[in-house]
């Protein structure tokens, strides 16, 4: 797995590692959905999103916040995100399965994506993201 949970007293702090920026966003999406729903399986419901931001950190914040919104109102457990980033523009094809009260029983509600301690750094051949989910 390319994400792990780090120590944080009040909330959930995640560290995500990927070899590309696009991969980092995609894995961050999986990290978020795993927190929200516990078990995630590949789904076949498609959604497409596009957005712009001033910098990669804002783009990531906007991307995860949008996933929270879509997942909440469409009751969609997003299992995959194919992300393309050009400059400060993102487009993503999302795949998901319907939320089920019987199946998705081990999740936690995420209230928001925090800007505090939100970092994306490049280390050798990898991108590393640290992000806090308010739960």
């Amino acid at each position: 797995m390319s994400f792990e949970e780090l120590e944080h007293t009040a909330d959930i702090r995640m560290r995500v590692k990927a070899s590309t920026l696009e991969g980092l966003f995609s894995d961050a999406a999986r990290a978020l959905m795993t927190v929200l729903y516990g078990t995630i399986d590949p789904g076949n419901i498609c959604r497409h999103i596009e957005m712009d931001a001033d910098d990669p950190v804002s783009l990531l914040h906007g991307f995860l916040s949008e996933l929270l919104y879509i997942s909440d109102v469409e009751e969609l457990v997003i299992s995959g995100a194919e992300v393309r980033i050009t400059g400060n523009h993102l487009s993503a094809d999302l795949l998901g399965e319907p939320f089920s009260r019987e199946k998705h029983t081990s999740g936690r509600e995420v209230k928001g994506i925090s800007y505090s301690d939100l970092t994306i750094v490049r280390e050798h051949d990898s991108y590393i993201l640290e992000v806090i989910f308010d739960v």
Binding site: H8, T9, A10, D11, S114, Y115, S116, D117, I132, D134
Partner: peptide, 9 residues
């Protein structure tokens, strides 16, 4: 008081 985001809790 504990570590939150923005303001402390």
């Amino acid at each position: 008081i504990h570590w939150g985001y923005g303001f402390p809790i």
